[in-house]
């Protein structure tokens, strides 16, 4: 194994999810290569540090009223039937911001998927429950929650302009995704080393953001 191959497998190596043959090859290379040994130490240190962090940090005060007021003030949600009854699909400030956030989510999705590679034997080594995949999932979750908050506010401001039937479809499906997210987060809390759950969870995050983005772009009367 050379340095490039070792770097590609570094996350799985510290997670203990490499096959036995790959793990042996990676360990042999690490023992001979000071640079890769240092890289492994850095990742292991980061994981250990992350494991010591609380799962959530509450803000010192409730920030939401201020955010909501600013969204309201900027009037990002205008009527969607513009001049002469033209069907206009809204372009929302909140939606644009969330779209940018979604790019971040998407890139982190890739990171989670790369960190969680298939088939692997029983885990060994790190036993903190914090893996490279779960560390990246924590970053994804933060981005997801910020985008979700913005988009829910945008949707709340548009409730009056959507038809009751459409609103019901949106809310019913948001509840479905929320339940799915809740169930998977609970499962992940019980089984933090599970290699598949982070990817499924991120898929659900992405579906919820996509659903909310679409809901905030539905034209009036829709």
């Amino acid at each position: 194994m050379n340095c490039q191959e070792f770097t590609l497998r570094l996350d799985d190596f510290v997670d203990g999810t490499l096959s036995a043959a790959e793990r042996t090859a990676a360990a042999e290379h690490r023992d001979q290569c000071p640079g890769c040994r240092a890289a492994e130490a850095r990742v292991s240190l980061l994981l250990a540090h992350a494991a010591s962090l609380p799962r959530a940090v509450a803000p010192e005060r409730d920030l939401w009223p201020g955010i909501a007021a600013r969204i309201e003030k900027r009037n990002v949600l205008r009527g969607v039937f513009g001049g002469a009854g033209r069907l206009r699909w809204p372009r929302l400030g909140a939606s644009a911001a969330a779209a940018a956030a979604l790019v971040v989510v998407s890139s982190l999705v890739t990171a989670v998927l790369v960190a969680r590679r298939a088939p692997a034997p029983a885990p060994s080594g790190v036993s903190t429950g914090v893996t490279a995949a779960s560390l990246q999932l924590t970053q994804v979750r933060g981005t997801y929650e910020a985008a979700r908050t913005q988009l829910l506010a945008a949707l709340a401001a548009r409730r009056g302009s959507l038809s009751p039937a459409t609103l019901k479809v949106v809310e019913d499906n948001l509840a479905i995704v929320d339940t799915a997210v809740h169930n998977m987060e609970q499962a992940l809390a019980r089984d933090p080393g599970n290699r598949e759950l982070p990817a499924l969870l991120v898929t659900a995050y992405r579906q919820e953001i996509d659903l909310l983005q679409r809901a905030t772009r539905i034209p009036a009367r829709g």
Partner: peptide
């Protein structure tokens, strides 16, 4: 999974395509 009821199935019927199916 040691802690959950997870099930996994990995096998090959020959070189060619790749089929991945995942559910919670």
């Amino acid at each position: 999974s040691e802690y959950g009821p997870g099930k996994e199935l990995s096998f090959s019927t020959g070189a060619g395509g790749r089929i991945v199916a995942k559910s919670f």
